[in-house]
Design a protein around this nucleic acid. Structure first.
Lengths: 343, 343
DNA sequence: TTGTAGGCGTTATCAG
DNA sequence: CTGATAACGCCTACAA
């Protein structure tokens, strides 16, 4: 038994035919005798033949591999995106090469480089926080290299991107709180330099206005870090400092929502009777806490799946990039649980 | 400007030299005039030359890519492992191809197949819950193919594995519960076909015995799926069926622990006063729930990093597989929080 | 129905 | 110091 993988050549030698015959027989080409096909397949089986994808890639200048560039793997939302990506890629016969930037631009660039070296067929990108200049992407786009951005999307022409409707998600959440009779709704916002944070604030404000409520700037509080710890401290302070006690919190992320919940409980307030709470992202723990946390779900897995489908369509020329004009916006869904239902 | 990537040939033509000269110049081979080197590098830069890793792989029968097979990406523990893997692989110049099995054996096998087709240099594997027969791995191991198992490790000779000390983790957790005065401790176990589950059971039993308590088989209950939902149902039933009401639950994973917590609360039991609870894995939400959940932390990132280092050492022949006799065992740490402290 | 030759991009080997 | 050639494994015109 030869060391290493059996090749077409090995089969050919064994059967005293040419390599091309074997190649054709294996792929059921017309014009190969059934007898030969049978024999070839038999020997292939016997030798445990496995086509060498590398040789194929070289030949076809296609690797059937896509590169995924993501800020951090250990992040629930991104992990769901990866999962969606992997699902679709697998079902369509593509491999996924994964790299995380840890929010470093330098690493983003070097990863792009090695992936290109590896002849990947396209990129799926959510760029790092350090990335403010998009030349390294524009250059590729201009060459017609397939790239689909998700979640964090750049403002450059011809870039195809997939994102969620942050505005509507925030609007729905706030509107729901109002419909439950809450009136003094605090918004625990994300970092104001992020567009998603600003969009969510916009949604929150619109919902208040639509319902004839006043927008009070004191009720919009930034939670720059976004941990439960931070938000717990902030909420505790708010409960004491605000002239009118808030009766609801809409947080820009679930961890912040949990912080608010813990702070309220500590202050002796009952949820949802005294205070309603809604988060954003629908992390797994939403159903595990008590009371269960209402949240605006971001379809991470769907986003990954959608982005991948678009990318693969581009790669396979099933899709004309020109046909996509704006970003693909996925719907969020307000999942109503116990933390915000009192009627 | 040619479409697609520039090749060595393009540089050669541009400079009227041979391809081999270019190849050598680019790699600073001895015996190439500085003048030529300079010119070659200049043109390479100009044409934005990037070596074709695929061609290299074909030539060297090495892809500088490792394959990672994991049950689920959306799983806090595994995402930390992936992160550790990616870190080390990146720093050592390897690519990571990722695949999730979704706990399906069939998918595990087919992923192995495509990865082998892609000439990966080695595997990092945590197998699926369905995997009870390890022939597909043994075969590779016998051929000398580099594989490192992590977390879920098989019991086959010559398999190299990295795991945490499940026995000790479970022992510590149970011992802690006893020290807090809990006496009727139920263990919600993982699937019994996984070695980690059995090790945790062993740790649980040892701790009871050490403390002079009886091991009651009825108090060891399997939660095959491991969701909070499942465990909630199981716990609710247990609370009714067991002759002596349990006063503590040690769960093999945090989600199951949360399920138990919810079930106890629903039954009107106070935590930690009436019932103590400890989980396993230290998921992020442990600190976010009320009461906060004690848990045995598993160093996921470290596990991924360690497994990758070993694998790459094997691949690069820096390591004699024979030199590793037993599994590499990483320490767990019991994080004590409110759910289990009543003294 | 099958075989031959050439090439995908690179590099090792052997000649000059 | 540099060039020609072959080979990694596979596919596909073109020939036979």
């Amino acid at each position: 038994m030869k060391i290493g993988q059996a090749t077409i050549k090995d089969i050919a030698i064994e059967l005293n035919v040419s390599a091309s015959t074997v190649s054709r027989a294996l792929k059921d080409y017309p014009g190969i005798s059934d007898e030969t096909k049978r024999k070839v397949k038999e020997v292939a089986e016997k030798l445990n033949y496995r086509p060498n994808a590398i040789a194929l890639s070289l030949r076809k200048s296609r690797s059937f591999t896509i590169g995924v560039i993501i800020p951090e793997v250990v992040h629930f939302f991104f992990s769901t995106v990866i999962s969606g990506i992997e699902e679709v890629a697998y079902s369509r016969g593509y491999n996924v090469i994964l790299t995380q930037t840890n929010e470093k631009l330098s690493r983003e660039m070097s990863s792009i480089d090695t992936m290109l070296s590896n002849q990947i067929d396209g990129f799926l990108v959510s760029f790092s926080k350090e990335t403010t200049d998009f030349d390294h992407f524009s250059r590729l786009l201009n060459q017609g290299f397939p790239i689909v951005f998700f979640d964090r999307v750049p403002e450059i022409p011809h870039a195809i991107s997939v994102m969620v409707d942050d505005y509507k998600g925030a609007f729905d959440a706030t509107d729901h709180l109002v419909s439950q009779g809450y009136r003094n709704i605090v918004h625990l916002s994300g970092p104001l330099n992020l567009k998603i944070s600003r969009e969510r604030i916009r949604g929150y404000e619109s919902a208040l206005i639509k319902n004839g409520l006043l927008v009070n700037p004191d009720y919009i509080v930034e939670c720059p870090i976004g941990t439960d710890h931070e938000s717990q401290k902030i909420t505790t302070k708010l409960l004491k400092s605000l002239p009118v006690r808030p009766d609801a919190f809409f947080a820009s992320n679930d961890m912040a929502a949990v912080g608010a919940m813990l702070a309220c409980k500590a202050a002796g307030l009952k949820i949802p009777e005294d205070v309603g709470i809604v988060g954003f992202s629908n992390w797994q723990f939403c159903t595990m806490i008590d009371p269960s946390l209402s949240s605006v779900s971001q379809p991470g897995s769907k986003m990954g799946a959608k982005a991948t489908d678009i990318l693969l369509d581009m790669i396979e020329k099933k899709l004309d990039p020109e046909s996509i004009t704006g970003p693909v916006v996925l719907e969020t869904e307000l999942l109503i649980r116990k933390s915000s239902v009192r009627i």
